[in-house]
Design a protein around this nucleic acid. Structure first.
Lengths: 293, 293
DNA sequence: CGTAACGATAGGCATACATCTATCGTTGTG
DNA sequence: CACAACGATAGATGTATGCCTATCGTTACG
């Protein structure tokens, strides 16, 4: 006769996996348990959350509406735990940072190093993910601060942080751009989004596209001549210098898309997080990072 | 081995009541149950939340830090329930409105009436409380929209709504203002806050103060000549017209302190709430209200 | 200084929560 | 059209959650 957090976790697992079966595997429990938890939750709420669709399930409108709240409940609880520990042991706070892939790989490590020298006790827990996930993490309060592209709307606040240039590179300059094959990041990636827009602007017809799930995979693809790609200068700086890759002149590139520091607005905020945010805003942060970059 | 919502409710009850005993009474369970729940929660979080203080308890720093998250978790869950029901039955949404006393008594009823004529299915659940509670309700997501004074900071967004004039009234004009006794609303009231500031500005020395818990009590106090007070023109319009009360000319009054419509920012938002917010923002709302006022 | 107020602890109990295995009903696919 | 994939249902079980009463330790207060 009460909503439980277990039910919420089960529901969210179903939402993210899109399947009761897979959710059960992920939660390390049996499929009927998940089924039961979700229908118990639906009973509590007074409305169905999932419905059968084909041989799988999908969320109902009510389920879609409820999901963000459910996610925030869990994120907030985690955040509350950090807040409590931080208040009890101010010198050993933990900050949950989530960064888009390229920033996470190239920018954040020096950032963390710089910050830890100033505040030795503070832990920075980094998650590296694509743009869509970064936004989700912030919105569901599972991260305190994010580093990614431009904030998408009023729901997230932030400020521009460091320049990031996207340019087109390949093993060699293709004879005909329209014939070139393009390597794309996975769905949900900000770089992919930028690439799609660029391709639409270029009006190349229907170029050959190949999705590869990470910057690393794309770089290997480039190395074997699989195609060309739009990628951050940070990610290919060395390869360009060594001549393994060359920049391809494409109208509209290089694209300047500065990274932004992102906050999930509102909600009680923690001193350690606020301090880290202010550090990022300071000139000092930029200098320290550039020093290590 | 898991945080439960019951534990959170117990903890919050202890926080708000300031006492394990009273919290138990309020939750209709025994005192040891509350004690156990709170210490279980503390165990989960890995830090003490309350500590003995004198013969009662008080929150530790960790408890104070955790409390707002706990409150938001419950508020968000309630909001999620509404969101789910709203998605399932769009025509019978519920909007949780919380208004400061004066606005709740004089302004909101016509507002509700006006809105319900436009959207017959929508229910507006009104809670009337003082300023402090209004802010707490919004921050903890236990209300969707608030009506009160100026928003206190960046954590709450809002816009000015309707004029509200605070003026000093009494049964008769006192011979010497410095000798007059002032009737105050309870702690946490915005009107009380305004009165305290006014008194400080007036520099009357140490006037006699008498706290009365509501606008109604104050009006009765005025009627029997207990003192004078700073109060909204709406609250005493009739008494002024009938001559039962008179306005007292005090430097700096009447104070103009427009009511504001307040939102708890961020978080997923519900269509019905958004629609109501936009209604309040519209010219139409003002006209309709003035019609009924 | 004794007593009342307040919480914590001890000890114990019921139930509903979170599970499981086995099976059935659908729905898509080869 | 049969079979595989997927969820829901049925039936059953352990346990920890939530709760109780009784009692003990402190702390303030008369």
């Amino acid at each position: 006769m009460a909503i439980t957090l277990t039910q919420i976790r089960a529901f969210l697992a179903v939402k993210t996996t899109g399947s009761v079966h897979v959710a059960a595997d992920q939660l390390l429990i049996s499929q009927p348990s998940v089924s039961a938890a979700v229908s118990a939750l639906a009973g509590e709420l007074g409305t169905a959350l999932v419905e059968r669709h084909g041989r799988g399930v999908r969320l109902t409108a009510a389920g879609e509406a409820f999901a963000p709240y459910a996610a925030q409940v869990l994120g907030l609880l985690e955040q509350g735990r950090f807040a409590a520990l931080e208040a009890a042991h101010p010198e050993s706070s933990k900050i949950r940072l989530v960064a888009v892939n390229t920033a996470g790989e190239y920018l954040v490590p020096p950032l963390i190093r710089a910050y830890r020298q100033l505040h030795p006790g503070i832990s920075i827990l980094l998650e590296v993910a694509n743009r869509a996930t970064v936004l989700e993490r912030l919105q569901s309060r599972r991260a305190d601060i994010g580093i990614g592209g431009r904030p998408p709307g009023r729901s997230l606040s932030g400020f521009p942080f460091l320049a990031n240039e996207l340019l087109v590179v390949g093993r060699e300059i293709p004879a005909d751009l329209a014939q070139a094959s393009w390597l794309l990041r996975e769905e949900g990636s900000g770089t992919r989004l930028a690439t799609e827009r660029l391709l639409a602007d270029l009006d190349l017809g229907a170029p050959e596209l190949q999705t590869l799930g990470s910057n690393g995979a794309i770089k290997h693809g480039l190395a074997v001549g699989l195609g060309i790609t739009l990628i951050s200068r940070f990610a290919v700086a060395r390869e360009l210098r060594d001549g393994q890759l060359v920049e391809i002149a494409v109208p509209g590139t290089p694209l300047t898309r500065p990274w932004h520091v992102l906050f999930a607005p509102s909600g009680p905020d923690r001193p350690a997080v606020r301090a880290f945010g202010e550090f990022l805003r300071s000139e000092r942060a930029r200098k320290l990072i550039e020093e290590y970059l």
